[in-house]
Computed example of a mutant assay.
Amino acid sequence: MKEENAKLQEHLDQQKKAITEVEGEIKSLQSNLTLEQIHDKEAKLRKEVKEMEDKLVKLRGGVTLVRPEEKKAVEVMYSEKISLWRRRKRMFKDLWDAITENSPKDLKEFKEELGIEYDEDVGVNLQSVSELLQHRKKRARGQ
């Protein structure tokens, strides 16, 4: 009886291994694309390539993508935002100096306690950002 039970257990283990192998093979086959899916994907990629090539031809041909009026409007808006940034930064600096003028606390600790971060603390420099527009204007005049 024990021998028969051991044989049956061994047979069961072999069947489990075989099932695991077959399931693994089924999963790998299911992860592969069918021929129809491959054709669909190929058609989609060919269409994308065609669109990109057409766009590249336009760009190489010197087509203006942004009209001068739109460009000017964006530059004006950018300039206004930089001015507002400067003004608000100056207002904050004046208020901060007035508040902390006679403060016995360490200013760095007080700033952290309030959760205040300067532009420089997060890696932003107003001067470098405002120079972007100036650099653009110099390039435009030089051309």
Rank of each mutant, 00 (worst) to 15 (best):
M1R: 14
E3C: 06
E4N: 12
E4H: 13
N5M: 15
N5T: 15
N5I: 15
A6P: 10
L8K: 15
Q9H: 09
L12Y: 09
D13P: 09
D13G: 11
Q14A: 15
Q14N: 14
Q15R: 15
K16P: 14
K16G: 03
A18L: 13
I19S: 05
T20F: 07
E21K: 13
V22Q: 10
V22W: 06
E25S: 10
S28D: 12
S28M: 14
L29S: 03
N32E: 15
L33F: 05
L33R: 08
Q37N: 01
I38Q: 03
I38E: 02
K41A: 01
K44G: 02
K44F: 15
L45A: 05
R46N: 08
K47Q: 12
K47E: 14
E53G: 00
E53H: 02
K55P: 09
L56I: 13
V57H: 12
K58D: 13
L59R: 11
R60I: 10
T64M: 10
L65Q: 09
V66D: 00
K71H: 08
K72Y: 10
A73H: 04
E75D: 04
V76R: 04
M77E: 12
Y78V: 05
I82H: 01
S83C: 02
L84T: 14
R86S: 08
R87S: 09
K89E: 08
R90Y: 05
M91V: 09
M91E: 03
M91P: 01
F92S: 02
K93I: 05
K93C: 03
K93V: 05
D94W: 03
L95G: 01
L95R: 04
D97F: 03
S103T: 11
D106Y: 00
K108S: 10
E109Q: 11
F110D: 01
F110Q: 00
K111C: 00
E113D: 09
L114V: 03
L114W: 00
I116C: 01
I116E: 01
E117R: 13
Y118K: 06
E120P: 00
D121L: 00
G123C: 00
V124D: 01
S130T: 02
L132H: 03
L133Y: 00
Q134Y: 08
Q134S: 08
H135M: 07
K137A: 04
R139I: 06
R141G: 01
G142F: 11
Q143D: 08
Q143K: 11
